[in-house]
Design a protein around this nucleic acid. Sequence first.
DNA 1: TTATTTGTTACTAATTTAGTAACAATAAAG
DNA 2: CTTTATTGTTACTAAATTAGTAACAAATAA
Lengths: 140, 140
Amino acid sequence: MANNIQFSIAVHILAGLACGCDQEGVTSGRLAQSVNTSPSFVRRTLSKLSKAGLVETTTGKTGACWLAKNAKNISLLDVYKAVDAPKAFAIHSYSEQKECFVSCHIKTALEKALAKTQKAMEASLAEISLAQIVSDVKKK
Amino acid sequence: MANNIQFSIAVHILAGLACGCDQEGVTSGRLAQSVNTSPSFVRRTLSKLSKAGLVETTTGKTGACWLAKNAKNISLLDVYKAVDAPKAFAIHSYSEQKECFVSCHIKTALEKALAKTQKAMEASLAEISLAQIVSDVKKK
DNA sequence: TTATTTGTTACTAATTTAGTAACAATAAAG
DNA sequence: CTTTATTGTTACTAAATTAGTAACAAATAA
């Protein structure tokens, strides 16, 4: 699968783990109930989070998942990177028209400009921790 | 149609207009050559840019398009808004599981957090002018 | 050995996005 | 007044992406 709402689901899952931590381990089935989808679906995202070192899991009969770090130390940027969410902007890939210098150079010019924007977005994500999300969830 | 590379194409079109300004008006057909697509496709984007006040057009036999403002005064944020490009993040819309407070409150918590990120991205776009893009295009 | 879970792959369905075609409205030019 | 060339818009089809499901091997506790 590719991305998009995957990021949002990943945050949901992590918030679920953060809140279920009193139970010392939660199953993909339980998370699936909270998200309202199938355990398979949850596990695919969970797998990415695990590879990124944000959650830990055990297999086997008493298999379960839990946060690998304190929620304070997990930023939304970590999550964004873990699920490999799409870039803020895509650049069209039409072939160049050689006689036209705009056509030939617009892409590199755009890439340069949009790299800044991407950085700005990521910097913003870096400043939001999972703990803040969890706090907001509990507040209301 | 919806979005995504539309933004990138819109910038290409505007850069084309900025560079063709010596000719005092460019047709959708000419722009289509530069972008390497059909005039129809160009016009649909052009239409949005026109409604947003970034370009001006005339119809009829000698119909053409040109920038409505100096390229210095057009920011990428103007373009982003004009083409109604998608938000940086979508939030999943699964129905809530009433017994689970994470499920019930995660979306508003996420909306709040992601609004900041969206703002950061837009602020970054606001600082990049079409003139800068054009300058980069001409440089190389 | 059985039950239950993760991790992974393969697959189908739905939605979104890309791209084309067609044509009315407009206006300049002959 | 007719012709020609353009914009603006809508409708449509095709392609690509994304969502979501199913199935099963590997793991491990009981």
